[in-house]
Nucleic acid binder design. Structure first.
Lengths: 136, 136
DNA sequence: GTGTTTGCAAACGTTTTGCACAGGT
DNA sequence: ACCTGTGCAAAACGTTTGCAAACAC
């Protein structure tokens, strides 16, 4: 599928994706909106959100739902982790984990002094598994 | 310090903490508000939020800032992880991790069929570290 | 009595949505 | 010409805050 589920190719989506690919700072929707406006002054924030959502569903970008922080977006869809600065909010990539998660021994990752981490699992709970079995 | 930084002991805070300790489902502020209202019909949601924030700062409870979901609260302050059901939102504890994080091999944890996880680091970025050095 | 905490309501910041119109195919 | 995607504005959502009154000490 050439357009990966998109029914139309629009200049708005093209430029939103383009700006995200150029970005190195994992921008929020609002940050991206400002940058896209330099090229498309009449674009709306809603359109930016709508395209980011579509691009995410199409697998072209990644939505970074961070704990207790504004959602950010990443054009790098390869498996990697992130570090967030608790002082300024800066977000960087962590490509290799050196240290022990359970023992909580991370002196330093990518120049950051690591102060903690958040690990959270996703899955299907026993109840919903049973319901899935019913309907299958 | 008997009151751990609280200047007053109020019935509102007492009952908020009490309901959270009774809860087994990691409730949101709104869920807790509903339960507390059974005992204190005139309490406001703002008061629930304010007390949850104070109790968190006092270390009596834990705030669970989950990725892309409403904030939940936990009276169990010991180190443990959580699994969230992607179907119904249910949240459970994971006390021991069996499997390989990097290799992403988690068949099952606590009855859940694990479909993924989110790992996120916190720290001080190079720039903020340099600024901290300046002022020290 | 003093000053913290409350109830209420309004404000906040982020994200979503309803609608009529523009524009991609 | 069709009908998806857009711009705009308003609404929705979870959370915070300003204020006068209530109440813990």
């Amino acid at each position: 599928l050439k357009n990966k589920g998109f029914e139309r190719n629009t200049r708005q989506r093209e430029i939103v994706l383009d700006e995200l690919m150029k970005a190195k700072d994992h921008p929020t929707a609002a940050m991206l909106y400002e940058r896209v406006r330099a090229q498309l002054p009449r674009i709306s924030l809603g359109t930016v959100y709508r395209n980011l959502e579509r691009l995410t569903r199409a697998g072209e970008i990644r939505r970074l739902d961070l704990a207790g922080a504004e959602t950010r977006f990443d054009a790098d869809t390869s498996r990697h982790y992130h570090v967030r600065c608790t002082e300024c909010g800066r977000l960087d990539d962590v490509h290799e984990i050196t240290g022990d998660l359970v023992g909580e021994r991370f002196a330093e990752l990518g120049g950051y002094r690591i102060t903690g981490y958040q690990l959270e699992f996703r899955g299907i709970c026993p109840t919903c598994r049973a319901q899935a079995d019913d309907t299958s």
